[in-house]
Nucleic acid binder design. Structure first.
Lengths: 101, 101
DNA sequence: TCGGAATTTCGGAAAATAACGATATCTTTG
DNA sequence: CAAAGATATCGTTATTTTCCGAAATTCCGA
């Protein structure tokens, strides 16, 4: 994990929000969208797009940026792509920050 | 402290480096420059400029950005401005990141 | 007070990022 | 196979960031 890539990814309020929303999806997404929510999968792009109020392309860009720097994991299931937090990477990040700074 | 401002400040390798250099100045700056180094003051702009290999204006910009977001503290002494880490703020940052993510 | 050194401020050119719509791809369903 | 929905990719314009040199400011010593 490259610290600078993570910081770039997090220097945008919406991307920070996405990471926070995905920590406890039930607190941030409408119940009907999480009908059959699976913690192993996460939340699909459209639900995140609706919550963020951004276009599909921007939402997709953001999610894949967060994925590229390791903070999110994606799983394709049929026509949907689900994103969830990579808790291991986030823990590593905390350690890295603690020891670097 | 605004998390997003901190992340923007840290999304630049030189600014990350400055923060690391200032953690243990003796490991990163020539001894003759730290002749009368005072932990309460830190390191002056010219020494940081020399280490970073940037122009005076850019160095000054970077340092004041790091100061504005709370990570550094500045003290003017005569014609020199010394910068040191704001350890309290950095600790707060660690906590914020830990609880936010 | 004058010159010079350290730093800051300002304006600008180049590079990077933001965010979109259009288009392409992939998948399911009729 | 065709159509429709979800997502990804691409090309674009607008905004932001990077980094500099020139000019301004501050301070010290002669």
């Amino acid at each position: 994990m490259e610290l600078i890539m993570v910081f770039k990814a997090l220097s945008n309020q919406t991307r920070i929000n996405i990471l926070v929303w995905l920590k406890h999806p039930h607190l941030h997404f409408p119940a009907e969208e999480l009908q059959d929510y699976d913690p192993n999968l996460g939340v699909c792009v459209s639900d995140i797009k609706a919550k963020a109020g951004l276009s599909a392309s921007t939402t997709s860009d953001y999610l894949s940026l967060l994925q590229k720097c390791g903070l999110l994991e994606a799983t394709r299931v049929g026509q949907w792509t689900y994103f969830k937090r990579n808790e291991g990477a986030i823990e590593t990040l905390n350690k890295l920050i603690k020891e670097a700074f």
